[in-house]
Design a protein around this nucleic acid. Structure first.
Length: 199
DNA sequence: CTACCGATTGACT
DNA sequence: GTCAATCGGTAGA
């Protein structure tokens, strides 16, 4: 199951739809050092030019070029001297993507720990830049085709029930703070932020 | 070239 | 809960 990459058609949809559908799927990375894999438990949707929080808002730049490319490719950018991984959605030219925010580690945890310089399981992949460090993802993989099934890809898994997904505002924004575009697996302890307790 | 900013993280109160 | 380090990207002179 971890060997079978998701298809181009999977990504060629609205980013909120893809963000939901990616929950529970496998993120897999293979390097000379070995294989790491984790289950996606938290995502955020970034829409096209109409979304003021999206890097696509002011049109393509050298940084966001791959975000305007075809769906199913990686968009990797730096923020605060760290890296974050997105999967591009919708046809080329739209500029929408899904940010992978948090994973549950499933394979290669000792390699993740070495790359992170930390051994606690909860500190390996519970944040967008933490998981990039644990999976050795940086600008060198920007634009990488995630449907190829080599180096870096996302593999299929059963669809998560809608009732197991919690929707919240996106994290860390100064604009469009109210939009419900963050998607979390309700029961996961590997979220980057704790969910607010039910009232 | 300089100046400023940030879809973060980790350390600290 | 607060706060600042850190550096690539971006805009502007």
């Amino acid at each position: 199951m971890r060997d079978e990459p998701l298809s181009r058609a999977f990504y060629n949809r609205d980013p909120a739809t893809v963000a939901r559908a990616l929950l529970g799927k496998w993120l897999v990375r293979r390097t000379r050092d070995g294989l790491t894999a984790g289950r996606i438990v938290e995502t955020e949707a970034y829409f096209g030019r109409g979304d003021p929080a999206s890097h696509s808002h002011s049109g393509p730049t050298s940084r966001s070029a791959s975000m305007f490319g075809p769906p199913g490719h990686a968009y990797i950018y730096s923020i605060h001297a760290m890296w974050c991984l997105n999967a591009v959605t919708q046809p080329a030219g739209i500029g929408s993507a899904v940010l992978i925010r948090s994973l549950e580690p499933e394979a290669g945890e000792s390699l993740m720990a070495r790359r992170r310089g930390r051994s606690e399981r909860l500190a390996l992949t519970t944040g967008p830049s933490k998981l990039c460090q644990a999976f050795h993802c940086d600008r060198g993989l920007d634009g990488w085709d995630l449907t190829r099934g080599s180096r870096l890809w996302i593999a299929g898994a059963p669809t998560v029930a809608r009732g197991d997904i919690v929707t919240t505002p996106r994290i860390g924004l100064s604009v469009a703070c109210e939009r419900q575009a963050r998607f979390c697996l309700r029961t996961s302890v590997f979220l980057s932020r704790k969910l607010k307790a039910a009232p």
